[in-house]
Design a protein around this nucleic acid. Structure first.
Length: 481
RNA sequence: GGUGCGGUACCCAAGUGGCCCAAGGGGGAGGUCUGCAAAACCUCUAUUCGCCGGUUCAAAUCCGGCCCGCACCUCCA
């Protein structure tokens, strides 16, 4: 069973075979954030789905070298810094820090490397010189350097755009048009205006163009001119990734990336979420409404290529779905008393069957939506076996196996217990003790068949957000409901 | 104008030639358990996959036409 990846370059699901002769090492590059503000849940979708892909590749036994850049110098950063009255570098630093904090809240692991554009200016300049030497780029009178699109025959191969059919001249900067030979030519090196962050270059003071960074850092960090996987949102397909291909391949004469992965947009109430539309939701704002497990589950509940609509109803459904497996796992832990061995699932035929279904789904272009079907079937079995064990009739080994398998699935999707809301938290020690006291009083009332009193206690606690659940083993309580 | 994506039950969402009278989640209905609830479990909730034709022994899946919605061609994950 091999992994198949939908490759934007071929528009097919291609078998995944890494370039590494041993077939073990995988070079993976994801376009990271431009740190001019906090990222939003739409950006988070990319970070999360790519995190899941990375985890799956590792699960399959690959050694993944995962690189995600941080664009810490760019027009928007400069503009925003001016608004806030602080140096651009300081603004970038602030939001870089916030980026790491926010991905951590969503359970997204940091990349193996997070190169920053400002640390790679030297090799970027070298790349520009190489392109000029090869006749693919030219400097304009202001000290900027442009990539000459018509010099690269394959231009448009990723986004299937034909240079002649594009709406040339529409919405273009007039000043830039004057400097460029062709409207589609894009900036490799941008001449600095006074006061802007700038580096010395053969063309004068300036800063690297956005597209250039990714080409340069992808090749540098992977020590290769061809990498295995390159990913980003669909909106980056054109022009960003198209331009990356053009400048990289024009320079090296080799394929730049072998598998191009593009995730679909996250809409909000049916409309595209974006920073420019201003309808975005940041992670900290969202975490006040939904727990991290819910957000992450929601983001993996549909296949990554599809559009996903962020609505209150959808999030509420996701929240309930996560409670289903979180609760099941907690109950299993309670009954088991000890953590199962990580590979305990291998001892159960049923678990192996569920694992095979999960793997089949994930190998089919990271189909997390379908993988979840296997996860939920597992949850049903887990609950059934757990109930049986509680009644002294079930197979403990089976319970351990299923619990271990649930951990495995959640580990791959990243919908792990550490993202769960702390349901029993939020009450001070004394309040918790008072709840216990009321439960004891109620138990006595029930034994005395004083059901009216018992129900009154339960109802009033429920009114305070404390839910009681009776079972043969005693009464449990939790917050919410 | 060009290039793509999508339309599957009340909602979300897999499935892209026979395993599909269509997975899974949410919601709803009934049941088991329970003093009653809750939770859990069981059953039911699309003979049908935007519409119309066609190909095929066989189509949600392929082809053609049409109707809707969305994105990209400009910074954007």
């Amino acid at each position: 069973m091999t992994l198949r990846i939908f490759n934007s370059l071929t528009r097919r699901k291609d078998d995944f075979v890494p370039l590494d002769p041993d077939g073990r090492r995988v070079s993976f590059y994801n376009c990271g954030p431009t740190v001019y503000g906090p990222f939003h849940i739409g950006n988070a979708r990319n970070f999360v789905v790519v995190d899941v892909m990375r985890r799956w590749l590792e699960h399959l036994g690959y050694t993944v070298h995962f690189v995600q850049n941080i664009t810490d110098v760019d027009d928007k950063i400069i503009a925003r810094a001016a608004e806030e009255g602080i140096p651009p570098g300081q603004l970038a630093e602030k939001y870089t820090k916030l980026f790491f904090e926010h991905i951590a809240l969503l359970g997204v692991r940091p990349a193996d490397e997070h190169p920053r554009a400002t640390q790679y200016v030297e090799p970027m300049i070298a790349l520009v010189e190489r392109l000029i030497a090869g006749g693919h780029a030219y400097a304009s009178e202001d000290g900027s350097v442009w990539f000459e699109v018509r010099s690269f025959a394959d231009y448009g191969k990723l986004s299937r755009k034909n240079i002649d059919e594009m709406r040339q001249g529409e919405r273009v900067d007039e000043e830039q048009q004057r400097l460029k030979r062709n409207a589609l030519d894009f900036c490799l090196w941008k001449a600095a205006k006074p006061g802007e962050p700038a580096w010395d270059s053969p063309w004068g003071k300036g800063r690297p163009g956005w597209h250039l960074e990714c080409s340069c850092m992808a090749m540098k960090c992977h020590h290769a001119e061809t990498i295995d996987i390159h990913s980003g949102g669909v909106d980056l397909q054109f022009p960003h990734h198209e331009n990356e291909i053009a400048q990289s391949e024009a320079a090296t004469g080799r394929p730049f990336a072998r598998y191009w992965i593009h995730n679909g947009f996250l809409n909000i109430d049916g409309e595209k979420m974006s920073k420019s539309l201003g309808n975005f939701k940041t992670i900290d704002a969202l975490l006040a409404l939904y727990d991290a497990l819910t957000l992450r589950h929601f983001l993996v509940s549909a296949s990554y290529r599809r559009e996903l609509d962020f609505t209150q109803e959808n999030l509420e459904a996701a929240r309930k779905a996560t409670r289903r497996y979180a609760e099941a796992r907690r109950e299993a832990a309670r009954v088991l008393g000890a953590e199962p061995a990580a590979d305990a699932w291998k001892h159960s035929a049923r678990a192996r069957e569920l694992e095979a279904r999960f793997a089949e789904a994930m190998n089919d272009d990271f189909n997390t939506a379908q993988a979840l079907a296997s996860l939920f079937d597992l949850v049903t079995d887990l609950n059934t076996v757990r109930t049986a064990v509680e009644r002294g009739a079930g197979d403990r080994g089976e319970l351990e196996a299923l619990a271990a398998l649930l951990d495995l699935f959640r580990g791959i999707l990243g919908t792990t217990a550490n993202l769960e809301p702390a349901e029993e938290a939020g009450l001070s020690d004394i309040s918790g003790q008072l709840v216990e006291l009321l439960i004891d009083v109620r138990a006595k009332a029930r034994r005395a068949k004083m059901f009216e009193l018992a129900d009154d206690i339960r109802n009033r606690l429920s009114g305070m957000g404390i839910v009681l659940e009776d079972s043969p083993a005693g009464t449990k309580w939790k917050r919410g409901g």
